[in-house]
Computed example of a mutant assay.
Amino acid sequence: MSEASPGQPTPSQRARLRVAAVYVGAALGPLGGGVVAPMLPQIGQTLGVSAHTVALSLTVYMVPFAAVQLLSGTLGERWGRRNTVRVAYLVYLVASLVCGLAPNITVFLAGRAVQGLANGFTSPLLLAGLADMVPRDKLSRSVGISASCQAAGMSFAPLVGGVAAASSWRWAYLAVAVAAGTLALVPPPGQRRPGAAAPRWRPLLTGQIALLSVAALVSYMAAGSLPFLVALYAQDHLRLRPDLTGLALLGFGLAGMLLGAVWGSVLERASARWCGAIAALVTGGLVAAVGLTGSVSALTVAWTAAGVGSSMLTVALQNLTVRAVPANRSGALSVVSAFRFSGSALAPVAWLPLYQVDPSLAFAMAGSSLLLAAAALLALP
């Protein structure tokens, strides 16, 4: 058995490095997508537009990110997972530099759109690559760690953006560009699969993928994308200052960051289908309870507990999806992820009108909709 040359990493060290790169890559997407949120006023001031106009960058990022995932997994497998992810990271690097150097809002929004497009290729292919790099009996825990890293990216994005905004918001995009360039050096394995070896679209057109897509969409629409509604409730009805609202909401993301690996280990010994369904029901009850809280402490406890349940639901969904179509794992992950993040776009449309009528009704309906996610998971074969 050959050994590595002096100073060169061994095969096992290279394998661990690739796995670590997948985990860091899982955090980069939500970090780069959400870092803009605390910097909206500063970006608007620099580019000569209102913060509300800059806020369009959130939508401009999410729409191509979600839409391209209907195709990106299968296309990436056909082109070669390794090369596709490397190119996507390099495109993300360039787009981040465009954002950081943008002279006007048009260029900035264009850069954000390209960021979202590139991230739509990296996310599913990284998770599919992870499934090929770790032993099958360790896959559930590895998927849980990946979910924790995604939650970490979402949780720390406001912190990174806020720190950058204190000096110059442009530094945040430079940091994201450097991270993308570094990750491009360590893409996941996966060669081009042409001709008869190419993954097919037809295996994705199944009831199993449809049920997972429904569960993923509802899980994000009714829980993962509700911080905006919780923040409104905290400020409108509990009279919480905006600077303290973020602290009250922080527990949801921290729960996902800290518990992903734990839930992955649980799913190595338990049914992901049943765990996901139970998590959906528990999370639904806690989301509904948020709208009934009368104090900041009660809201913080209820929302953090909802984050615990939502974390289990996310890890269960990812575990079920990564195993759903072995012949086109990336395709399955990208399609389900497209529906998952479509929930982000639907959440304000679905819940804000109800909130304006009665806040408790909005939270009750959001929580009740998770019954649909539980039913979809239990209906899986």
Score class of each variant (00 low, 15 high):
residue 2 S to F: 15
residue 3 E to N: 15
residue 4 A to I: 04
residue 10 T to A: 14
residue 11 P to H: 11
residue 18 R to L: 14
residue 19 V to P: 05
residue 32 G to L: 08
residue 35 V to I: 04
residue 41 P to E: 09
residue 50 S to D: 15
residue 57 S to R: 06
residue 73 G to V: 03
residue 74 T to H: 03
residue 77 E to M: 07
residue 77 E to K: 04
residue 89 Y to F: 12
residue 89 Y to N: 09
residue 90 L to P: 03
residue 101 L to N: 08
residue 104 N to M: 11
residue 104 N to K: 10
residue 105 I to Q: 09
residue 107 V to A: 08
residue 111 G to I: 01
residue 115 Q to D: 07
residue 115 Q to F: 06
residue 116 G to W: 08
residue 119 N to Y: 12
residue 120 G to I: 05
residue 124 P to V: 00
residue 126 L to D: 02
residue 130 L to K: 04
residue 131 A to D: 11
residue 132 D to R: 12
residue 140 S to F: 15
residue 140 S to Y: 15
residue 140 S to G: 13
residue 141 R to I: 08
residue 144 G to D: 13
residue 151 A to P: 08
residue 153 G to L: 02
residue 153 G to T: 00
residue 159 L to W: 12
residue 163 V to H: 11
residue 165 A to P: 01
residue 166 A to S: 10
residue 170 R to A: 08
residue 173 Y to M: 00
residue 174 L to K: 13
residue 176 V to P: 01
residue 180 A to L: 02
residue 183 L to K: 04
residue 184 A to W: 00
residue 186 V to P: 07
residue 187 P to N: 02
residue 187 P to F: 01
residue 187 P to E: 02
residue 188 P to F: 02
residue 188 P to A: 02
residue 189 P to E: 04
residue 189 P to S: 00
residue 190 G to R: 02
residue 190 G to W: 03
residue 196 A to S: 14
residue 204 L to V: 00
residue 206 T to H: 03
residue 208 Q to N: 05
residue 211 L to C: 09
residue 214 V to Y: 08
residue 214 V to M: 13
residue 217 L to T: 04
residue 222 A to F: 00
residue 226 L to Y: 06
residue 235 Q to E: 14
residue 242 P to N: 10
residue 247 L to M: 14
residue 249 L to R: 02
residue 251 G to S: 03
residue 253 G to Y: 14
residue 254 L to Q: 08
residue 255 A to N: 02
residue 256 G to V: 00
residue 259 L to T: 02
residue 259 L to Q: 05
residue 273 R to I: 07
residue 274 W to G: 11
residue 276 G to A: 02
residue 287 V to H: 01
residue 294 G to K: 13
residue 294 G to N: 15
residue 296 V to M: 15
residue 297 S to T: 15
residue 303 W to I: 01
residue 304 T to E: 15
residue 305 A to Q: 07
residue 310 S to L: 14
residue 310 S to Y: 15
residue 313 L to D: 03
residue 314 T to Q: 15
residue 315 V to G: 06
residue 317 L to I: 01
residue 318 Q to A: 14
residue 320 L to V: 00
residue 321 T to N: 01
residue 321 T to K: 02
residue 322 V to W: 03
residue 328 N to R: 08
residue 333 L to E: 04
residue 334 S to H: 04
residue 335 V to P: 00
residue 337 S to D: 05
residue 345 A to M: 15
residue 345 A to E: 14
residue 345 A to Y: 15
residue 347 A to Y: 12
residue 350 A to D: 04
residue 352 L to I: 14
residue 354 L to C: 10
residue 356 Q to N: 10
residue 365 M to C: 13
residue 367 G to F: 00
residue 373 A to Y: 10
